[in-house]
């Protein structure tokens, strides 16, 4: 066990139970949004979680923060399982773990000034007096690159990128150690996206932050992350350093995902051999048997539909490179 893990997620599960009927509600199956996933995040690193819609990546973030109660598993923060924490202890831990949301329009209350929004965490946790809070808010506005004089403005007076800066300031105000970033830049334009990504890397260095960076855009995740986990239908299918994941993907889904992202380089695109995954992502209500990817997998064999592959380490050089595939590393190009 390495000791520098800030967060360890162990066998986390979140099932949503569907009910039908009006008076006599009966169970109509469950959605296994997150189904037995485990990963570790080292202090000071950026851990990327990537996958398509419905793979359970956002649910994972919410389950870690207990915004939705996980069905089973452990979330170990600095050695303690926060899922077993009573109310009061959980309240205290919220200072240390913050979250940044995807939609800079929906994540800020439209009736509050940005000063109120950023100082709210201090109010909730009873930190400092009015004067101190105002000073701190102004300082943070400066840190995230906004004009401190705009403290009394409302969110709608700002552009998308500026709003996301406000969201970042709110996440920073309590000096957290870990920030869960749920698609923080996917709603932004390219040029603004780069501003926010740079801001986040700068802040990470300055305040020694650890990020769990969730996104569907593989190139963004690769740019910011040290290690990346790829999710498919509630499962983690591959974990590796961001270089290894791009250069030597082991899982056929990762290969398909990498291949699907067009690279902004016309000559390169002409030469590149792409493999287009066929079919749609199946419904998480009734996921395929065995390996959940097998109906779309170009190299699936009989075993794949019968048995579920384990997430195993395939690396020989000591660095971890996990994959959940019976044929890990086999090329999917025919």
């Amino acid at each position: 066990m390495d000791n520098n893990n800030l967060l360890e997620v162990k066998n986390l599960k979140k099932y949503f139970y569907l009910r039908s009927g009006f008076f006599f509600q009966k169970s109509a199956g469950s959605v296994k949004a997150v189904d037995d996933i485990s990963f570790k995040i080292k202090e000071g690193e950026t851990f990327g979680l990537v996958g398509e819609s419905g793979c359970g990546k956002s649910t994972t973030a919410r389950a870690i923060l207990r915004l939705i109660e996980p069905t089973d598993g452990q979330v170990i923060y600095e050695g303690e399982d926060i899922l077993s924490f009573p109310r009061k202890k959980m309240f205290d831990i919220r200072k240390k773990i913050q979250i940044i949301f995807q939609d800079p329009y929906a994540s800020l209350s439209p009736r509050m000034t940005i000063g109120d929004i950023i100082s709210e965490p201090m109010e909730i946790h009873n930190i400092g007096d009015k004067k101190y809070r105002e000073k701190r808010v102004k300082k943070l506005l400066e840190i995230v690159g906004l004009n401190p004089e705009h403290i009394n403005r409302y969110p709608h007076e700002f552009s998308g990128g500026q709003r996301q800066r406000i969201g970042v300031a709110r996440a920073l105000v309590l000096n957290p150690k870990l920030i869960l970033c749920d698609e923080p830049v996917s709603a932004l334009d390219v040029s603004v996206q780069a501003q926010i990504l740079n801001l986040m890397t700068d802040l990470q260095k300055e305040f020694n932050l650890t990020y769990l960076f969730i996104a569907h855009d593989l190139s963004v995740v690769k740019h910011v992350s040290n290690n990346i986990a790829v999710m498919y239908l509630g499962k983690i299918v591959e974990v590796a350093s961001s270089e290894a994941l791009y250069e030597n993907p082991l899982h056929p889904y990762t290969m398909g995902l990498l291949s699907a992202v067009p690279i902004p380089d016309p000559e390169l695109e002409k030469k590149r051999k792409r493999i287009i995954l066929t079919g749609d992502v199946p419904s998480p209500i009734d996921p395929p048997s065995g390996c959940r990817f097998h109906p779309r997998c170009p190299i699936a064999k009989e075993i794949c539909s019968k048995q579920e592959p384990e997430l195993k380490n395939y690396s020989e050089d000591g660095k971890k490179h996990l994959s959940a595939c019976f044929f890990a590393g086999k090329s999917i190009v025919k």
Binding site: A194, D217, L218, S219, Y246, D265
Partner: peptide, 13 residues
């Protein structure tokens, strides 16, 4: 400003 999947070294955007 674009992040590229094929970037070799992590250069600042």
């Amino acid at each position: 400003s674009i992040t590229r999947l094929d970037e070799k070294k992590k250069e600042k955007l």
